[in-house]
Amino acid sequence: MLITLFNAVLIVLITWLAYLYFDLKEKATPAKERYSQLVRGVASVVDRLEGYDKEHSREIAELSERIGVACGLKDEQLQSLNAAAMLHDLGELLLPRDLVKSSKKLEGDELELLRTHTLLGELHLKAQIEELDEVPSLIRWHHERWDGLGYPDNLKGEEIPLAARIIALADAISAMNAHRGYRKRQYAGDADVIAEVKRLSGMQFDPQLVKTWLGIGCPLSGVKK
């Protein structure tokens, strides 16, 4: 009798805790949405200042998410991926405008300075959000290359977190497909972009990600056609 009563109390307690959990989760969702909207807002300011003709960061975030979902990333990883993709070029705001918007091929000290945007973005965000959040690290590594010849840390292969590899691929696809006010579209047609991505598989890009991207129909943006 005593055990039965104990069980009954336990069931009531578990039910109450479950209710509390789902209630809190439901209340928390709008906060998450508000956070996403805020990140999107910041990203659109960055895009505007960078001279893109469209919502570049949002496009990368959506394309990254499509690839991330195809790779089987968990919800928590997808959230970090989305935030990092949205804010990946934040560090460029801290650099001289004429350097970021230069239409000539940068070399030497100018190139080195431009490359610090990955570190600046990470540092700036780390100062604002929880120390052990991975989003700043993903921003730091969005220009790493599969072959170890990227920057800033020259990580190679799977040393680069999957989310950062996804952003690198999405960013490059978007860059091949976009034009800025001061720079024309790099590749004439979609087929040229696809051929270039294939050519750079195993050099700039993770071959497994290239395969995944080909497998989902080579989207050039996050919007399904």
Binding site: D147, G148, L149, K198, S201, G202, M203, P207, V210
Partner: peptide
């Protein structure tokens, strides 16, 4: 060394080498 890396990683994922 870098070329081997390129070939081996594409081979591991069965991605056709274009170059």
């Amino acid at each position: 060394y870098q070329i081997m890396s390129y070939w081996l990683s594409n081979r591991a994922c069965e991605v056709e080498v274009v170059c």
